[in-house]
Design a binder for these strands. Structure first.
Lengths: 205, 205
DNA sequence: ACCTGAACACCGTTCAAGT
DNA sequence: ACCTGAACACCGTTCAAGT
């Protein structure tokens, strides 16, 4: 007797997450609802609910799935190049989905892929930082910076930037062109560099 | 003939914002609704709606109000001490309201008080950074870092941190005590220091 | 274990109406 | 200019019920 397939095909959690990304990429975070996911899958809303248990858990699952889309192989051998590469891949993974950075920022994920990323980052930082504490704290600085930049990057897509700064703020006015130049790529690399330069020398208390 | 007061007292936008903060501080961001604010003020929900026009604009107003609670006087004269002090006050202002960092992070505010803060920060950075571009980009790095740290700080209050890291992640396990030690104050100062050290020497492309 | 329908207690937004 | 009530099109969650 061979094992039988279940008669009713049934929906799997992975399919739910896949459909959730489809809805997300189509309409952004505010259009992401269990009903919309259900409609995409052709099932009842409560079927989605049964798989995700709660909306908050769905968000955690999506964040973890974004980390899972990162490749953690073929990394540079130098510790600082490795840290930079890891965060560039994280940025890429978040940019891969509409509002991806907001999804990751909204949750405190401790799934295996998220931890795997941290494991790689901290490993590299321990090679270059004077103390363990410096390494840990630096990993947070890098993470916050990446999250913040990509959130701004994704928010600026399709947002109406203010074209003018009031004249009461002369200094901001004098640099307004630098402010508007998006150049997220260069800004990102510069920020990583900035934090890493100090990480080598600065000792956390 | 002296000017008469309007017969119906009426609610003002400032009162709406005040009530919004009351609701926010009591129940957090997910309890913040126009109906809850209206209930606090004893008016109809549509009265609140008329003043705020839209929920998104209310969020902008709240973010701007948080910046308005910052004092921008009596700052240190040294550029780097000034930058640190400004961000410490920003952190304090955000910590002053439940989910304050999430409120600020969720909006791209260009109100006068927000711009005033940036004006001060950029002014100070221009004194210490090699190029204008370095100054601007550094201001963003500092802002992202502050936002990220305070968001984590406020999320960790009342959240259930994972007590154990799976053994597949030996490096994370070896530093898990550093991870759990909150010490947001020290971490915050260290992060600012870290970014500012490089700002003096690193030149943006 | 998986899926459904119905009901519940909420949302923000819009509109027609009052003063 | 300011305030209201009613209706609309949504939410996430819960519960009792099916297979």
């Amino acid at each position: 007797m061979t094992k039988r397939q279940p008669i009713k095909a049934g929906i799997t959690l992975d399919q739910v997450i896949e459909a959730a990304f489809a809805v997300l990429d189509r309409g952004g975070l505010e259009k992401l609802s269990t009903r919309a996911i259900a409609a995409d899958l052709g099932v009842s809303m409560n079927t989605v609910m049964w798989h995700i248990r709660t909306k908050a858990r769905l968000m955690d699952l999506l964040a973890e799935a974004i980390f899972a889309e990162m490749d953690l192989d073929d990394l540079p051998s130098g510790w600082d190049a490795r840290v930079v590469e890891l965060h560039q891949r994280l940025r890429g993974a978040m940019l891969g989905h509409r509002d991806g950075a907001r999804v990751v920022a909204g949750t405190f994920v401790t799934g295996p892929r998220t931890l795997g990323f941290s494991e790689h980052v901290v490993t590299a930082l321990l090679e270059g930082c004077p103390t363990r504490r410096t390494a840990i704290w630096t990993s947070w600085s890098l993470f916050y910076f990446t999250l913040g930049l990509v959130q701004e990057e994704q928010a600026s897509a399709g947002a109406d930037l203010p074209e003018r700064v009031p004249e009461e703020f002369p200094v901001l006015n004098s640099v307004v062109d630098e402010f508007h130049a998006a150049e997220f790529d260069a800004r990102f690399r510069f920020g990583l560099e900035q934090i890493l330069r100090s990480a080598e020398v600065l000792e956390a208390p």
